[in-house]
């Protein structure tokens, strides 16, 4: 037997059943990225165009390596959730599910590849 009324269960959670969790998660990652991105752009932009040993030397240093790792994880989560938001607006049914799964998988694959590259360079 359910003690909660249907209204009580629904209240504040909306059609998504997760309430404002998605939105709040995007807000948190957005603020994180706002701090990470400018510094990372400078590091990446400076490394781009260099010889391989210069690139490896840059990303072997702790700060660029940790920053890039953070950017990959936070950025790709932010991307996956943002892409899901777009897909939910334009697709429905099985197409929607397939596209969201695809975008999520792509985001994790990019993050994992980048982290693997960083580990190989820095360790």
């Amino acid at each position: 037997m359910r003690y909660l009324t249907a209204r009580k269960r629904a209240e504040g959670r909306g059609a998504s059943h997760t309430g404002t969790e998605h939105h709040w998660s995007m807000t948190v990652s957005a603020v994180g990225l706002a701090l990470l991105v400018p510094v990372w752009l400078y590091i990446f932009g400076s490394a781009l165009g260099g010889a391989r040993d210069e690139v490896v030397a840059t990303f072997a240093r702790p700060f660029p390596a940790i920053l890039t790792g953070l950017l990959l994880v936070v950025g790709m989560r932010h991307f996956a959730m943002g892409a899901a938001m777009m897909i939910e607006d334009y697709a429905k049914g099985t197409t929607r599910k397939a596209l969201i799964i695809g975008a999520t998988a792509l985001a994790w694959a990019v993050a994992a590849t980048g982290l693997f590259a960083l580990a190989r360079i820095a360790l």
Partner: peptide, 8 residues
């Protein structure tokens, strides 16, 4: 990321 993987 591809460029970074290649560097690694």
């Amino acid at each position: 990321v591809w460029w970074l993987l290649a560097a690694a």
